[in-house]
Design a protein around this nucleic acid. Sequence first.
DNA 1: TTTATACTTTACCTAACGAGAATATATAGT
DNA 2: ACTATATATTCTCGTTAGGTAAAGTATAAA
Lengths: 122, 122
Amino acid sequence: MKKIIKDEDMCEVHVTHPENIQQALCHQLDDEKSQKLAEIFKILGVPSRIKLLSLLINEEMCVCDIAEALNMEQSAISHQLRVLRDAHLVKFRKEGKEAWYTLDDDHVVKLMNQGMEHIMHL
Amino acid sequence: MKKIIKDEDMCEVHVTHPENIQQALCHQLDDEKSQKLAEIFKILGVPSRIKLLSLLINEEMCVCDIAEALNMEQSAISHQLRVLRDAHLVKFRKEGKEAWYTLDDDHVVKLMNQGMEHIMHL
DNA sequence: TTTATACTTTACCTAACGAGAATATATAGT
DNA sequence: ACTATATATTCTCGTTAGGTAAAGTATAAA
């Protein structure tokens, strides 16, 4: 008897272990959470931004000083600070012409330390 | 008396707070560390990779199943797994034609949880 | 030794993004 | 009002990197 080929049999992806996939779909992070989670990590995924944040761990700094310390254009620093502000990673206060930046909270430090642990662990 | 302009006065970047910059330079992460630290964060900074890792928290999975669960091309998954392997975030074992992947260690989970805390904290 | 399956790799395309230059805004001093 | 300084923004450019398509490799079954 000739084997009848149905539409679902034509699917290119061969489902090897349906039960595993089922379990996976139950536990995976939803779109919104994985999106937001990736967002912070992406922001932390740039050396110059990591350096910038590491500066602010120790002291409040103004834009000009940060630029000098990182040997980068003031414009570039301002760009990065904008990104870090939007992500609630840093905050600032204006004092005359100057803007003084600090870390928004200690979550950032914890994240960086956790990352360092992975680095050290090889 | 006419003011004499010296070379260092011509520098475009005005050093506002030299002592702060000095302290900053002492504490900032060196190039290599900030480079490596940014590297893992960058890898975690992609939604599809976050989702992939979240799948592996709960169970060992083969490439085909991961592709099915994430609704992505098997080739794309293979690429991501290569990146994650190089970063020591996942490991795998071959069993016949299949490759079964798991998280390399629990550092990854800690990192993701720390990230989630930041998200939740807003 | 063919054929199919499971995965990896190479090549390529496009979009995203960090950084510099130029411009704009704001604040302080004269 | 004018000038200088501190920061922010707009525009642009060059590079990076995720994803797809296609070719390559390896293992197993017929």
